[in-house]
Amino acid sequence: MKHSLRNLAAVAATLFIGAAAQHAFAHGDVVPQAVDTTGLKNLGADWQKSNPYRKDKTAIRIGDSAFNQNCARCHGLGAISGGIAPDLRYLPVGDEGDEVFMPRIRKGSVRDGRVYMPPFEGTLSQEAMWAIRTWLETVHED
């Protein structure tokens, strides 16, 4: 009887650890991925206040890929959140949405000492960030 309880406990512990490990890696590689912005106008060192690529087909294509590489693990494929992070389809379009989007992607979000979103400034270029914003406007919902 002692052996069967020990075996049962060992099996339960193994299943628990395996499930916990699988959950921990559910979002895959969380290291920001490089974004190739070839084909986009270089924006220089000064940060733009509004999206210079709005409705640009190249920016939409690059932004789609960049979002999937860097944002979808938390914000969901197609920007449809599964509850971990905000659903970005509901960001306002136009300059109003730019004012919400750009400070958050650049500086991230920390509350009570907890990182809710890492800062991407210094990792992603301004061009890559605006390309993501351009793509997000194509999946916008009211």
Rank of each mutant, 00 (worst) to 15 (best):
G78K: 14
W130G: 03
C74Q: 01
I60H: 10
V31G: 11
A13H: 04
K2H: 09
K107N: 11
I62S: 12
V100P: 04
V115D: 04
Q48S: 02
D87I: 04
L77V: 15
G113V: 09
N68K: 14
A59G: 06
M1H: 09
Q126R: 03
H3Q: 12
A20H: 07
A66H: 03
A21T: 07
G94N: 12
Q33A: 09
T38V: 02
C74V: 05
C71F: 10
P86A: 14
Q69G: 04
R106I: 00
E127N: 01
E99M: 14
R114L: 10
N70I: 02
E96S: 10
Y53P: 09
I84M: 14
L77C: 11
R104C: 01
K49C: 04
I84W: 15
A59T: 00
N42T: 00
V31A: 13
D95M: 05
A128V: 01
I132D: 00
A12L: 14
E141M: 08
L77S: 15
L15C: 14
R54Y: 12
H23C: 08
G82F: 03
I17L: 15
G83W: 04
L40Y: 00
E141K: 13
V100Q: 14
A21R: 02
A59K: 02
A10R: 13
E99R: 15
P52D: 10
M117P: 08
T134W: 00
S125Q: 05
D98M: 13
E137H: 04
A19K: 05
A10M: 15
A131W: 00
D29Y: 08
D64C: 07
A59D: 02
T138K: 04
Q48R: 07
Q33N: 07
A79W: 03
E96Y: 02
R61V: 10
A21G: 07
M129A: 09
G97T: 13
V30D: 11
L91W: 03
R73S: 14
R6I: 15
Y116D: 11
T14D: 04
V30Y: 09
V110I: 10
G82C: 05
A66K: 01
I62Y: 05
N70V: 07
K57I: 05
R106P: 00
G76V: 07
W130S: 03
G28D: 07
Q69T: 06
R61A: 15
F120A: 06
K49F: 05
Q69Y: 07
Y90A: 09
A128I: 01
S50H: 13
R54T: 15
A128F: 01
S81D: 07
H3E: 12
